[in-house]
Nucleic acid binder design. Structure first.
Lengths: 113, 113
DNA sequence: CCATCCCATAATCGAACGGTTATGAAATGG
DNA sequence: CCATTTCATAACCGTTCGATTATGGGATGG
């Protein structure tokens, strides 16, 4: 409330976000977390197709990009997709997508071409 | 009309798009094209902060990602931001952003900033 | 014509990246 | 306790990437 500008420390920069999303394996992990909810590294490794250390590193990047959060319980670490993480990218798309459509008067119906 | 799914041949894959958007210089070029409209490589080089060959290569990537089009006129090449290029990413965001918001019932301060 | 301008490509370099195996550190369970 | 599970980190390798300088090839204009 005291905070009009929501540029919190947990909000990643657009650059970091786009970089995090630019890898297919990372997106697959993220998509799985979105669809299935909180998952352990073990479970994510099972469906990722890459080694466990690689999964950990990918999750680390997603975490640094504020796209996931980690919860440690015993010897397992559970990762969860973070809701507000995509906000900066959504905003970027809104700004440039909007200007874009506006400039071209939306002769594109997104479905028609 | 025969085509319900907008998966046209000129539409780049999500992977290619995210990769194209993952570089700050490339995004700056794209943003400039969106704001200022069609520009020559010369003009883009002037505002990019990198060398002309690098601008050409960045534009090449944006073009391969279907985010810009090129028009050659004499010895100059004019690049234009392409409206429909962002569609796959917008769709991706819609799908996962939606599920996300739904799951967390949030999207709370997205309007705040 | 010839010098010039605009652009693209080639060669090259260092940094970053995705991936692997090996190792180590906690927590769990028999 | 000791073996095992779970995860993270380290060391390493090949590839990709961003960026540079150098080169070449078309248009342009004196």
């Amino acid at each position: 409330m005291t905070d009009h500008i929501p540029r919190g420390d947990r909000s990643a920069s657009c650059d970091e976000l786009f970089k995090a999303l630019s890898d297919a394996t990372r997106r697959a992990l993220l998509e799985y977390l979105v669809r299935e909810g909180e998952q352990s590294v073990h479970a994510l490794t099972a469906i990722s197709g890459v080694s466990q250390p690689m999964v950990s590193r990918h999750l680390g990047k997603l975490k640094r990009a504020s796209l996931v959060t980690a919860r440690r319980s015993g010897r397992e670490t559970y990762y969860t997709a973070r809701a507000k993480g995509l906000a900066p990218v959504v905003q970027w798309m809104a700004v440039y997508g909007a200007l874009w459509s506006q400039r071209f008067t939306a002769l594109e119906d997104l479905g028609g071409y």
